[in-house]
Amino acid sequence: MSQLKRVQQWATFARVWHIYDAAWQNPFQSAELLKKYLMGMHKPIYHPMNDCGDHVIVINTADVALPGDEWKKRVYFHHTGYPGGASWTLAWELHKKNPTMVMKKAVYNSMDRSLQRRYTMERLHLYPDANVPLNLLENVSNQIKQLRPKPKRLDEYKEEEVREFPKLIDLPKSYIVE
């Protein structure tokens, strides 16, 4: 076995740790991406009965972004099993209670229901901010690229950057500054 093949074999069968920054990302589109790493679908040896999934650490889940007014339109349903035990929770209410729950449910629901799903979820580590325990962080060897760029606020630019940016229009001479 050549040196390259040996490393390739080691990399294939090892559990690799990935990190993903969820700030300003859609949790449902991110879930489709993360589930491939969690289930090991990005590996050539993938098979549903082959336990070859990786670990994924997701940071900044409190800063996930939803399009438009989906925070108040998306509803999570729960039933206790008793009569009158149904409850409907809006996405923003769930996010207020637990800032990792929207992301967790998105990944859980993105996977097909099977006996492996609960064990796959154990390899997902969610954190509302960037404070990750060091014993987890030292395992990380890969960063998953974000799906959409994080938008930069206008007050985060320097003053001269804003002033010297190419201008499309000039204000008319009669314009009164406010």
């Binding site: 300003w24 972004a65 399009p67 925070w71 108040k72 923003w92």
Partner: peptide, 14 residues
């Protein structure tokens, strides 16, 4: 207040 404090983005196609 409420849902407005959370991050959101928009599609220009709308």
């Amino acid at each position: 207040r409420g849902w407005k404090k959370y991050n959101k983005y928009f599609y220009e196609s709308t």
